[in-house]
Each structure stands twice: as C-alpha cells, then as structure tokens.
C-alpha cells in the first residue's frame, strides 16, 4: 500500500515537474537574457527522470518482473526515455531547443498515463504466458528507447519545418559529405532570434579568421538527422530482438501481425529519410517532411495499433 502511495506521488511529481520545466524552457527561449533559467529547467528534468526511475524500479521490485507489461508502465517508461534522451542530447549539444520541444511530449505522455488511464489499468497484473521471458526486458525496453529517440529526432524536423515555413532553403551538411552547397536564402531573421540559443560557442577567437559556420537552421537539421540516425539502429535491434523472441514464443520470426507491420513501416519511413539525406534531388525540406511523417507513424505504431485491439501484441489493454 505504502509503495503504491509513493509511486503515485512520484508520478504526480513527474507530471508537475515536467509542466514547470516546459514553462521554464519556453520562458528561457522567449527571454534569452534571463540567466540560469536553462540550468533550472535541466535540473527539474533530471529530478523528474529520477522520480520516474524510482517509480519504475519500485514496480519492478514489487511485482518481480520488468515494469513494461501494460500501457501505464510503458507510457511511464516512454516518459522516462524521453527525459533521459533529452538530458543526454542537451548535455552533448548544449541546445535549449531540444528541451522546449521534448518536454511537452514527455508531459503529455505522463499526463495521459496518470490522468486519462483508469485506475484499473494502472495496476500491475500478472504477466500472460507469452510475456514470461527475458526477451521482454530486451525487446520492449529497446523498442521504447528507440521510439523516444525517434520522437525527439522527428520533432526537431517538425521544428525545422515550422521555422522555415514559407522559405526556400538549401542546406549544407548533407550526408554525402561534399559540403559544397551554398545557402540560397540565408535566414537572417530567425538566425537573429535563435542564434543565441544554440549553445555552441559562437565567439570568434582572435587567432581564427574567416570561419564559415553552420547557421541555426542547419544545426537543427543536423541534430535531427543525428538523433534519428541514433534511433534507427536501436529500432532495428528492437525489431530483431522481437523477431528472435517471436520465433521462440509464437513459432515464427515474422507473422505480419499489425504491430510488427507498423514497426516495419516506421523502419521503412526512417530508412527512406536517411536515404533522402544523401541524394541531391531531396535536398532542403523534403527529408524533414519525411521525418515529420515518421513522427506520426511512430505514434501509430506505439499506440494506434493497440487501439485497433487486433493482433498478437494486444497486451495490457482493456479486454
């Protein structure tokens, strides 16, 4: 009982924390002058991440199996993954934009888990026979982590599309590596607004002259590309882990179950995105449009398929 109360208050804290962190990130974007806001938001996110870790690990401890057996737990794990990946990327790139885009999603996920789901679905129930395997931990956690990373990566592409709305853009930083594209229409206005937010050291040292750096748009684009590039191998590993598990539990490594099919569709969309990065005829906004489509597809794959209630993957949902 006590454990349940603790878990509840931790999830409530996570929701409140994410709400505050989101507001702080947005304020810090709107008023770049106010110092320390970013660090405050990062700290809150870190606390939220710890709270979610505690919730999940206490459920793991109390129920004796990896806490990914129903929708509630998987939503909490997704929120954990989103905050974790967010903290990781923010630490790597020092960019505040990632927080302003990622935290709202994490907040909605947590809100959905704790407010919209009936209490009956929040309770842990015994694992069904098919889930009693060590592959549960391997397959589901990697899938969830890859969803979190792909969601963040495609969100950055959506952000890129919003900023470049109505403008013609030609980007540097294609993955062919020629790097010889010229910026057709330098985006003076948005660069002015956002340039201080890109955390990379912009100062020019005395010893260096004539440095041609990427602008903000290009860095968002590249960040999105790298994030999706990280999520894609994880998605592959997750699908393969699922295939190996399916071959042990269901007798076939691929059975065109709706969830499997949608995971494949997600994989194909992001494969198309990664390939669109290396062809000149797809330069500019087109890859970002594909990635934004990927955002939708990840959500269909994660939640939409289960709402249909068909197939072998309908665990942890109302019967």
């Amino acid at each position: 009982m006590n454990l349940e109360i603790m878990q509840n208050s931790l999830v409530n804290f996570a929701f409140g924390g994410l709400l505050i962190a989101m507001l702080v990130y947005w304020i810090s974007l709107a008023f770049p002058g106010i110092g320390g806001l970013n660090r405050l938001a990062t700290l809150i996110t870190l606390l939220v991440n710890i709270a979610l870790t505690l919730t999940l690990s206490s459920r793991w401890f109390a129920n004796g199996y990896f806490p990914l057996s129903n929708l509630y737990e998987s939503l909490l794990f997704l929120a954990w993954g989103l905050t974790f990946v967010h903290l990781f990327i923010e630490n790597k790139t020092k960019s505040r934009l990632i927080g302003a885009t990622a935290i709202p999603v994490a907040m909605f996920v947590t809100a959905f888990a704790s407010l919209a789901l009936p209490l009956e679905m929040q309770k842990a129930s015994p694992l069904v026979p098919a889930l009693k395997s060590n592959w549960l931990m391997m397959h589901v956690s990697i899938m969830m982590l890859s969803y979190a990373i792909l969601i963040l990566g495609s969100l950055l592409s959506i952000l890129f599309l919003i900023i470049t709305k109505g403008k013609d853009i030609n980007l540097k930083g294609s993955s062919i590596g020629t790097g010889s594209y010229k910026v057709k229409n330098t985006d003076a206005k948005s660069t002015l607004i956002f340039s201080s937010q890109v955390g990379i050291v912009q100062e020019q040292s005395n010893m260096l002259i004539n440095s041609t750096r990427m602008n903000l748009l290009e860095s968002i684009d590249n960040l999105s590309y790298r994030t999706i590039g990280l999520g894609f191998p994880l998605l592959t590993i997750g699908i393969i882990a699922g295939a190996v598990w399916a071959n042990e539990a269901w007798g076939s490594y691929w059975s065109w179950d709706p969830k499997e099919t949608w995971a494949l569709i997600t994989w194909l969309i992001f494969a198309a995105y990664l390939h669109s990065r290396i062809t000149k005829s797809w330069q500019g906004k087109k890859p970002a449009i594909l990635a934004s489509l990927g955002f939708l597809v990840v959500w269909i794959c994660y939640l939409g398929v289960n709402f249909l209630g068909k197939g072998l993957h309908s665990y942890g949902w109302l019967a």
Partner: peptide, 23 residues
Amino acid sequence: GVTNRAQLMFEEELLKISKMSSS
C-alpha cells in the same frame, strides 16, 4: 574538411583543433 553525417560535431571538432593548435 568534410564529414558525411555528424556535421555539427565535426565543426566543433575543427574549431577545437584550431584553438588547441594555436594556443
């Protein structure tokens, strides 16, 4: 220089290499 994927990181690396060598 050029890189085929991590453009952002690569630019930072170039900057770091330049700074390191000149300091």
